[in-house]
Every structure is written in structure tokens, then in C-alpha cells.
């Protein structure tokens, strides 16, 4: 039997990167998957690949849209057991000159969007007698500051920290109902979004990987490897895990991305 046989899952961010890899993996493990993404064409492509899966265009920062989409996805799947949200968007690099609109957009996509998605999914998971809420959280960009200029993402990092707290609070308040809440902390992962962000700032991804070198002991993660973290936490193998965020970073954080190596 496949690990997620019979489970109904909504993956937000399924159009590319970690979300796409997660949608594929959940599908291969027997789940029925609905795909949502800001990029309509990308969501449609993933959904088509998974055999005409339900598919939605979604701006996760829009509270009403999130509720509508989660409800529609749950109805299309005949209920909901799992939800994974992996939002990403343009990121800024500064504190002093960070425009309020940029700060608000980043915070809304990452932190508020996670909250909205959890809020919308909880009634459906309760109806199913329990389930799992998952989010890609505090990836460790902050720790790259020492290695790359100017890859320090203040708004992104602050929003990711807020996501961590949303995950823990949800676990505290809803685990007794059988609703587990967990996160995956990817190390630097070779996704379209990450590569584009680096390139926009004049950094080639291979250059970046070479620069970090020993700081990423198993090298840069592939999205498929990060998706395995979601598979674990979504599955019965993690039945006693809640309020916890799993690092999937190939040992990077064990040496603080090389900062502690000597």
C-alpha cells in the first residue's frame, strides 16, 4: 500500500518548485491531489500531469480567495485530509530602505497566507476526523548572509518566523482534535523561484553553490528531497509529531552553513 493511500490533499504552490514536487510525490503515494498556484498556467500543467487533478488560481495573500479555493478544492476531492502550503514570491534585501508595500506583500504571502490557509482548512480536517496542516517555513536564507552578498532577506525571514509561530499555535490549539500542524524547513533548494531570485541579483546558482561549498555538506537540495519531508509529516509515520518543523537541509544547519567549520 502506498503511504498516502486514499488521502485527499490540497497543495498550494503546486505550479513549481517544492510545491510541484510535493504534489507529484503525494499523487505517487496514492493521495488525491488538488493543485493551487498564483500562476494559473503552472497550476494547470501540474494538474494535467497528475491526471486532470482539480486546479485553482490562487493569491494566497487574499483571505477571501483562500477560503473560496480551499472550500472548492475540498468539495472537488470529497473532503480534505492534508494541506501543504509552499508560498514564495519576490523578496527584498534591505532594512533601511524597505518600502512598506514590499514588506506587506512579503509578509502577507508568507505569514498571513499560511494563517488564511490553515483557517480555511481546519473545518474540513475536523469534518474528516483529523488531518495534517503543513507549510514550508523558515528556510535558512538568513544564514547565508555571511556568504553571499546581498542575500539577506529581512522581510522574508521575519515572515518565516511568524509562520513558525502559526504552526506551533495551531498545534497547541488543534492537535487534540486530531489536526496535526507541522512545517518543513528546506535548506537552499534548487527551485525555479530560488534560481530566479539569485539571478535577479546577479548571482548564478552554480556560483552560489560553489561559494557555500562545505557549508552545504550534501549540496543543494532538489525539490524532490524536500517533498519527502512533507510526505513523512503528512503520513502515519509521523502520527505523534505536531508543532514541529523538520529541517531538510542535508546537514547545512548542523554547521550553520559552514560558519562553524574550522
Amino acid at each position: 500500500m502506498a503511504i498516502l493511500n486514499g488521502k485527499r490533499a490540497l497543495v498550494i504552490g503546486a505550479g513549481s518548485g517544492i510545491g510541484q514536487a510535493t504534489a507529484r510525490l503525494f499523487h505517487n503515494e496514492g493521495a488525491r491531489v488538488a493543485c493551487a498556484d498564483l500562476n494559473r498556467a503552472a497550476a494547470q500543467a501540474t494538474a494535467a500531469e497528475l491526471g486532470a487533478a482539480p486546479c485553482f488560481q490562487l493569491d494566497i495573500a487574499d483571505h477571501q480567495q483562500v477560503h473560496r479555493t480551499v472550500d472548492s478544492a475540498a468539495k472537488a476531492l470529497g473532503g480534505l485530509d492534508l494541506m501543504v502550503s509552499t508560498p514564495f514570491g519576490p523578496v527584498s534585501f534591505v532594512i533601511e530602505n524597505l518600502p512598506p508595500e514590499q514588506w506587506q506583500r512579503e509578509f502577507n504571502v508568507l505569514a498571513s497566507g499560511t494563517l488564511y490557509a490553515f483557517q480555511a482548512a481546519i473545518p474540513w480536517l475536523r469534518k474528516a476526523g483529523g488531518g495534517v496542516l503543513l507549510s514550508a517555513t523558515a528556510s535558512l536564507f538568513g544564514d547565508y548572509g555571511a556568504h553571499t552578498h546581498p542575500a539577506i532577506f529581512p522581510a522574508y525571514s521575519a515572515a518565516k518566523a511568524a509562520q513558525e509561530m502559526i504552526i506551533k499555535a495551531t498545534a497547541m490549539l488543534h492537535s487534540r482534535e486530531g489536526i496535526r500542524s507541522c512545517g518543513v524547513q528546506p535548506g537552499f533548494t534548487r527551485t525555479e523561484g530560488a534560481v530566479r531570485t539569485l539571478e535577479e541579483n546577479g548571482i548564478q546558482v552554480d556560483q552560489f553553490e560553489a561559494r557555500i561549498g562545505e557549508g552545504m555538506p550534501m549540496g543543494m537540495a532538489m525539490p524532490e528531497a524536500v517533498a519527502e519531508g512533507f510526505l513523512f509529516l503528512a503520513s502515519d509515520y509521523a502520527s505523534y509529531i505536531t508543532g514541529y518543523t523538520l529541517l531538510v537541509d542535508g546537514g547545512s544547519y548542523a554547521g550553520r552553513f559552514g560558519r562553524m567549520l574550522y
Partner: peptide, 25 residues
């Protein structure tokens, strides 16, 4: 045991150096 099995398995290929809390929160 279940969590230990998954973390030790090839399905956790990029998980290393990690403290996994299996504690119900």
C-alpha cells in the same frame, strides 16, 4: 519506531544532523 524508520529510510535522503521531536507537541 515509525518516525525512526522513516528518518532512517531512503525516503529521507536529505535529512541529516537533525533533532526530530516525536512528542505530540
Amino acid at each position: 519506531a515509525k518516525a525512526t524508520a522513516f528518518i532512517c529510510s531512503p525516503r529521507s535522503r536529505h535529512v541529516t544532523g537533525v533533532s526530530v521531536l516525536v512528542d505530540g507537541g
